[in-house]
């Protein structure tokens, strides 16, 4: 029943007349008002009473909170080289266990050479001692240090003079030092997020372009 327009059609008028005849006198005034009332049907929702959903308190840090704690920025002089040296010791143990370096024969002669390279690309590089051998940008060449952070496109390296440098992977070639073995790694192949690297399939051949 729409409220605003005047009741005109035949049936409604007769209903009103009937009501006026039968209702007690004190209620006569209310007839019109009562008829105009809206009734709540199942599908119709009232507009005013929208219940606000209570937001659940998140249990993990939001981006803002992380930023406030300084999780995104590592200042250039915040990490000391002496603090990172133990990482490198643990890493060399880890990597020699992963690659089974004791069993390794001379370069290229081993049967499972393919698998060896696959494991390198799936391993973790945090804490590795690395040096930039070649790069498109000449000022990066020769930088040496321990890797502390590994993102999709960059390595963060702490050098001996306690400086943190960011090095783009894509156009650089790195050398890793494991005890007395040198491993040459093309940064181009490593452009994956560190968490995803172990699950992603590595292309066995990529065109080198340096």
């Amino acid at each position: 029943m729409s409220g605003l327009e005047k009741i005109t059609d035949n049936a409604s008028v007769s209903v009103i007349k009937f009501l006026q005849a039968n209702v007690p006198k004190s209620d006569l005034v209310n007839i019109e008002k009562e008829l105009k009332k809206d009734f709540l049907l199942a599908k119709k929702k009232s507009k005013g009473q929208k219940v606000k959903k209570k937001r659940k308190k998140s249990r993990i840090l939001t981006r803002k909170e992380k930023k406030a704690l300084g999780f995104y920025a590592i200042p250039r002089d915040s990490v000391k080289y002496s603090e990172v040296v133990p990482l490198n010791q643990i890493w060399s143990d880890y990597i020699s266990q992963m690659l089974e370096l004791e069993k390794l024969g001379p370069v290229g002669t081993n049967k499972n050479w393919e698998q060896f390279t696959q494991t390198i690309y799936k391993a973790d590089f945090h804490g590795s001692m690395m040096q930039v051998v070649r790069s498109k940008c000449p000022s990066y060449v020769g930088k040496k240090g321990i890797c502390i952070m590994d993102t999709k496109n960059t390595f963060k390296i702490v050098s001996i003079d306690n400086l943190v440098t960011t090095i783009p992977k894509k156009d650089s070639v790195f050398e890793l030092y494991v005890k007395d073995i040198k491993i040459c790694v093309f940064g181009k192949h490593l452009c994956v997020r560190p968490a995803e690297r172990s699950t992603k399939k590595v292309k066995s051949y990529l065109h080198p372009d340096l």
Binding site: L69, G70, F71, I74, S78, V79, E83, P86, L87, I90, W91, Y94, A123, D124, H126, G127, I148, M149, S198
Partner: peptide, 19 residues
Amino acid sequence: RINYLYQISKHMAGINPVL
């Protein structure tokens, strides 16, 4: 890898909480 990361994370805990 998890084992290794656990070790270095524990090592850095007192020194650099961000890392």
